[in-house]
Design a protein around this nucleic acid. Sequence first.
DNA 1: CGGCAAGTTGAACCGCCTCAATGACGGTGG
DNA 2: CCACCGTCATTGAGGCGGTTCAACTTGCCG
Lengths: 246, 246
Amino acid sequence: MPHVHDCFIRKLSAFHPLIGQDIARLRTMVSSTRAIPAHQELIHQARPGGRAFVLHKGWACSYKLLRDGERQVVDFHVPGDFLGLRDLLLPVCDRSIVTVTEAIVSEVSLQGLARTFQQAPRLALAVLRTACIEEAAVAEHLVDVGRRSARARTAHMLIELYLRLRLVGLASPAGYACPLSQGLLADALGLTSIHLNRVLRRLREPGLATFRNGFVSFQDLHGLKEVAAFDGSYLEQIGTGPLLAA
Amino acid sequence: MPHVHDCFIRKLSAFHPLIGQDIARLRTMVSSTRAIPAHQELIHQARPGGRAFVLHKGWACSYKLLRDGERQVVDFHVPGDFLGLRDLLLPVCDRSIVTVTEAIVSEVSLQGLARTFQQAPRLALAVLRTACIEEAAVAEHLVDVGRRSARARTAHMLIELYLRLRLVGLASPAGYACPLSQGLLADALGLTSIHLNRVLRRLREPGLATFRNGFVSFQDLHGLKEVAAFDGSYLEQIGTGPLLAA
DNA sequence: CGGCAAGTTGAACCGCCTCAATGACGGTGG
DNA sequence: CCACCGTCATTGAGGCGGTTCAACTTGCCG
């Protein structure tokens, strides 16, 4: 019933047309919507939990910790994302998810999900599809880190976040609010924050994009896509549905 | 009915106990088992297909091509793996899958999978779990490329392949047959084949592991795990089931 | 005002890449 | 049977991108 569900519904709709009944079922799937402070763990690496969440508001990120203290951010999560599906299906989760900002989430139990699968297979399919898309994002992320220069990789990440936020109405071609610190973004890109800082300057000074004070703003989105060698087939094709006429 | 299904069944069993009925259903899920030559595309990047396969014999790999011709191998596939689940669920697949060696596969249709989900939810759950594990491998791979040195990363990959092969009985602590070329492995690790060659030497000369003539052999698996800072929580916990008492 | 986290800049180092050449092997056709 | 070829593996020398270490600044909060 709370309208904070909007992002999730909006996102699912982009993948799969939902009917009214589906939305009603969606509301029975989740429970205990609540606010979580920033920098709080939702899911802990290697601790069996079996909890999943729908993120309604705020940002989160999943990361893995190495023994030497290094951290690799695997993915960022924005409103509408379904977190921890893996944690429900596997006995042990291999990564942690923490909030980046204050966040509003709803918890999803294994029972709730299973019930949804039984009663509304179409809906279940939509959920699976979003999970697939998020996995595709991880793979794209891997390509970034493995085969693109720091500059292309950074440009690519800024654009990807833009598309994902646009899908839920939180970004415009001018830019978007981005609460990530340079250190966190660097841990996602496989760079040091020092080098990322220099890379960001080399995007800012030629007039491509600016990341400052919690905002990403695009001066030349087309040029930025060139730099990123962006091929958004895995994301762009979505987000062209009726909900995103803007 | 062909016993080439063994690897898939064996792998599913490791995640979820199967009963006889499940195995019978599994056999109705797939169709047209056949041999595929080496270096042949099973699934083509950006070409809508909606086909998926169970790999019974041989190796395959999924990769993404960049506009500049660079290639990033996202994952290797060994017997027992389920290929292309994403391709069934999403309208467009964002990566290609090719055979590395000659391979034997069975095709799985969306209908076949959907039927399985309806008739045998337990089985469907097992399939989803293996898909999750493979996604976890991609994430681990991302950590490799993003935050580990070339040497640790290479060691890590050799061990990961070992564990995945062991799960289907194709590896022993002494080593395993590995038909990958150095160039292909380098494309997975985000290295040049030249540098990978030097890295392999720095694993061979201290007496850790050898990769030569299509075989990986471990001289000092424990030491190798040290080098890799290996934390196989996402893989090791599995493979300790009854089927893998060896 | 003091303290901490995050951002910014500089200088020096090194891991990995690039370019280049050679060796080892199997296949193919003369 | 050997000359020719393509693919893969191996080794060398030199250069660049990104790291490391070390300031210093800025902004926020107590």
